[in-house]
Amino acid sequence: MNFCMIKVSDLVLVNDKGEVIVGRAHHPVNSPAFAIHSKTQKARQGLNAACHANSVYGQAFTPFACLIEMI
C-alpha cells in the first residue's frame, strides 16, 4: 500500500505473538516487519510504537512475491 494512502483504520496493534488485538487487519501482518519490530520493542521496553518504510528499490520486488537472493 502506498504510504500516502494509509488511514488510521489500516493500522493494527498486535501482541508479542503477532496476533491482532486492536483493529481489523485488511492484509496479513507482515511477518518480517513484525520480527524486526518485536525485537526492537523487546530491547527498548519504553517504546510505544515502531514503524518502518521500504525504499523505492525494495518496493520494486514486492509485486513479484519472490525472495531476493543475498549477493
Score class of each variant (00 low, 15 high):
residue 35 A to I: 03
residue 52 H to T: 06
residue 51 C to Y: 15
residue 60 A to P: 00
residue 42 K to N: 10
residue 59 Q to V: 12
residue 36 I to P: 00
residue 25 A to W: 03
residue 42 K to C: 04
residue 33 A to S: 08
residue 6 I to T: 13
residue 30 N to V: 00
residue 25 A to Y: 02
residue 16 D to M: 05
residue 7 K to I: 10
residue 55 S to V: 01
residue 40 T to P: 00
residue 49 A to M: 14
residue 42 K to D: 11
residue 61 F to G: 12
residue 28 P to I: 07
residue 36 I to K: 09
residue 15 N to Y: 06
residue 10 D to K: 08
residue 56 V to D: 11
residue 51 C to L: 15
residue 60 A to G: 09
residue 49 A to G: 09
residue 34 F to Q: 04
residue 54 N to P: 00
residue 42 K to H: 12
residue 61 F to V: 15
residue 36 I to H: 06
residue 6 I to D: 08
residue 6 I to V: 15
residue 16 D to A: 02
residue 59 Q to M: 14
residue 58 G to W: 07
residue 36 I to T: 09
residue 8 V to C: 04
residue 56 V to P: 05
residue 8 V to N: 13
residue 7 K to P: 01
residue 9 S to I: 05
residue 12 V to A: 02
residue 26 H to N: 11
residue 49 A to N: 11
residue 41 Q to P: 00
residue 38 S to L: 03
residue 55 S to M: 01
residue 57 Y to A: 15
residue 55 S to H: 02
residue 41 Q to Y: 05
residue 43 A to M: 08
residue 34 F to A: 01
residue 7 K to T: 13
residue 31 S to I: 07
residue 38 S to A: 12
residue 27 H to R: 14
residue 9 S to H: 06
residue 44 R to E: 12
residue 24 R to C: 05
residue 45 Q to Y: 01
residue 45 Q to S: 13
residue 62 T to M: 03
residue 14 V to A: 00
residue 38 S to T: 02
residue 21 I to R: 06
residue 32 P to C: 05
residue 20 V to P: 00
residue 42 K to G: 00
residue 32 P to Q: 07
residue 38 S to M: 10
residue 58 G to H: 14
residue 29 V to Y: 05
residue 46 G to Q: 15
residue 16 D to C: 03
residue 20 V to I: 05
residue 42 K to S: 10
residue 13 L to S: 07
residue 47 L to N: 04
residue 26 H to W: 01
residue 20 V to L: 01
residue 32 P to Y: 05
residue 32 P to D: 08
residue 57 Y to E: 14
residue 32 P to A: 05
residue 39 K to T: 07
residue 46 G to H: 15
residue 44 R to S: 00
residue 10 D to P: 04
residue 54 N to H: 15
residue 52 H to L: 11
residue 62 T to A: 10
residue 30 N to S: 11
residue 25 A to N: 08
residue 47 L to P: 00
residue 35 A to Y: 03
residue 35 A to F: 02
residue 49 A to V: 03
residue 49 A to D: 08
residue 46 G to W: 14
residue 22 V to S: 10
residue 41 Q to E: 08
residue 19 E to I: 03
residue 38 S to C: 09
residue 27 H to W: 12
residue 15 N to M: 04
residue 23 G to M: 10
residue 23 G to I: 03
residue 22 V to E: 15
residue 29 V to F: 06
residue 9 S to R: 06
residue 37 H to V: 02
residue 28 P to Q: 09
residue 44 R to W: 12
residue 16 D to V: 02
residue 41 Q to H: 10
residue 10 D to V: 05
residue 24 R to H: 10
residue 19 E to Y: 04
residue 46 G to D: 15
residue 48 N to E: 13
residue 27 H to F: 13
residue 48 N to D: 14
residue 26 H to D: 03
residue 41 Q to V: 04
residue 28 P to V: 06
residue 9 S to V: 05
residue 29 V to L: 04
residue 26 H to Y: 01
residue 51 C to E: 13
residue 60 A to C: 13
residue 57 Y to F: 11
residue 50 A to D: 12
residue 32 P to R: 04
residue 35 A to N: 12
residue 31 S to T: 08
